[in-house]
Design a protein around this nucleic acid. Structure first.
Ligand code: MN
Ligand code: MN
Ligand code: ZN
Ligand code: ZN
Lengths: 148, 148
DNA sequence: ACTTCAAATGCAACAATGTTGCAATTAGAT
DNA sequence: ATCTAATTGCAACATTGTTGCATTTGAAGT
């Protein structure tokens, strides 16, 4: 049964459409950046996006504004990585969360452990839990070895 | 029974002594900053220290170097706060670790839950676990209420 | 198609935070 | 008191982020 939804085609919503759906203008800058976030396998920093845009470069300030607008409009999510760099991901896809990470205090590398995420504690009344992250730190094998 | 430790007085080790114990020079800059960290009830940022130094101001770069040296020498610990500002604490006091935090995505406030810290997973061979942190995020009661 | 105008952009200027190179100073050993 | 490597101060630079304002443009209406 293909496409029975009233007043919509079966085509997945395009970046431009998702932008217009918020009531704002679908500009090339927003479309291009949203496309990048959509296809990126990992969260992108401001700098990553700058590089990925290549010759079709946006003004630096415009890019800051586009990224923040995407977040404000609910289309993207902004998170600081372990090096305190802001990274942006497409909103909605809850699948990448609940990781268990180990950060080496010596070399800074981050390891993604495949331990099961711990069970969420009971939240205080009225709180909504969206994401849960378990971060461990210490020294990695490499650094322990080279330290003697 | 006061003070029976061999070759030491009962006086707590002074900042200058702790610095010399590392083999480095006890300079006014290092002593002053270490004193500040010792008496601070909360982790201090570079800027906090600048302000606290008042008229006895150090050069900005020297302060960066002193703080980083304190960390490298093991006398202090450097951690990013939830606003991505580096904050420094006296090392050793292990009591503040293994907290469970909740950060509200809407208002940014951080709540310190009193849930028990989860059990550490088995570490890969050669890894040393130093600290473990369980971070939850979502919306707090205040923000959920005002959102409707 | 043409007009209209708030929304979005580009650009210049600024601010905050952190880094590097190097000459001058100084802690602490002899 | 002298000596010297460790530390400091300063100038210059880099990166990341913000603000004000003149110009351009998406898209709604004609
Ligand atoms: Mn860049
Ligand atoms: Mn400052
Ligand atoms: Zn390591
Ligand atoms: Zn809140």
């Amino acid at each position: 049964m293909p496409d029975k939804t009233p007043s919509s085609t079966s085509t997945p919503i395009s970046p431009a459409e998702r932008i217009r759906a918020t009531g704002a203008r679908a500009t090339p800058a927003r479309i291009r950046v949203l496309e990048l976030l959509s296809s990126a396998p990992v969260p992108l920093s401001h700098h990553d996006v700058e590089l990925a845009l290549g010759d079709a470069t946006l003004d630096r300030v415009t890019l800051y504004r586009v990224l923040d607008w995407l977040v404000a409009s609910g289309l993207a999510v902004k998170r600081a990585d372990e090096r305190r760099v802001w990274r942006f991901t497409l909103a909605g896809g809850g699948q990448h969360h609940s990781h268990v990470h180990f950060r080496c205090d010596a070399c800074g590398r981050v390891y993604c452990l495949d331990a099961p995420a711990p069970i969420a504690p009971v939240m205080p009344e009225g709180f909504t839990l969206a994401r849960l992250e378990f971060d461990l730190s210490g020294r990695c094998a490499d650094c322990n070895r080279s330290a003697r």
